[in-house]
């Protein structure tokens, strides 16, 4: 019971945050709405017993990505964050259509399947309590670390390389060209 209430509250907050993030004109408000969405999603991860992922979600998305977005807005748009242009009017109809159609296509099979459950029962749909208990035990940080350092060590190293490359690349791309005495840009 309490889990259902929590699920519905969290999903309502997530949907609300996402909607506000894509629809607010003020970009800074948009970022804060987006952070609300991230926080709600991290709560959902906790409900799914993935508490390590939830902590990483808070650390990376709210702590790092949010700040990065805010800094970019401060460096590019008006400091007040107001997006003075209209919302994109030209493509809104097709955009809305696609945005409704894609999830509808994704959801429909599940709904139809439920009605003709005998045709193709979704085996995984029922959360098996025994498995759930297993998951609780398997999901300690220790198990995750073991898997990460043994089975997935090569992807992990590649990821480290990717992050380093992204760090250096981001600095190189965003770095302002040096100005000489006359105030003109000199190529880097």
């Amino acid at each position: 019971m309490i889990e259902q209430v929590a699920f519905y509250i969290l999903s309502a907050v997530a949907v609300l945050g996402a909607l506000l993030a894509v629809s607010r004109r003020n970009l800074v408000h948009g970022v804060f709405a987006l952070l609300l969405f991230f926080a709600a999603l991290s709560g959902l991860f906790v409900m799914l017993l993935a508490d390590y992922v939830a902590a990483v979600q808070v650390l990376v998305y709210i702590g790092a990505v949010g700040i990065l977005l805010l800094f970019t807005i401060m460096l590019t748009e008006h400091v007040t964050g107001d997006d003075l242009r209209r919302l994109g009017v030209r493509g809104w109809f097709w955009g809305l259509l696609l945005a409704v159609a894609v999830p509808a296509v994704l959801i429909l099979p599940a709904v139809l399947n439920e009605k003709s459950a005998k045709a193709a029962p979704i085996v995984v749909a029922q959360g098996n309590p025994a498995l759930a208990n297993n998951a609780t035990q398997a999901n300690t940080v220790k198990a995750l670390g073991k898997v990460l350092m043994e089975k997935y060590v090569v992807p992990l190293e590649v990821l480290a390389l990717l992050l380093t490359a992204a760090l250096i690349g981001a600095v190189a791309v965003a770095h302002a060209p040096e100005k000489d005495a006359s105030g003109k840009d000199t190529p880097a």
Binding site: V28, F32, L35, D51, Y52, A55, V56, V58, L59, I62, G63, A64, G66, I67, L70, T80, G81, T140, V141
Partner: peptide, 26 residues
């Protein structure tokens, strides 16, 4: 079980509060 990680995650929210205060004051 992962208190230290959570600690760093949650303290980083503090940064946002500071920014929010600075920005919202105009």
């Amino acid at each position: 079980d992962n208190a230290v990680l959570l600690f760093f995650g949650i303290t980083s929210i503090n940064t946002l509060a500071v920014f929010m205060a600075g920005w919202a004051s105009r």
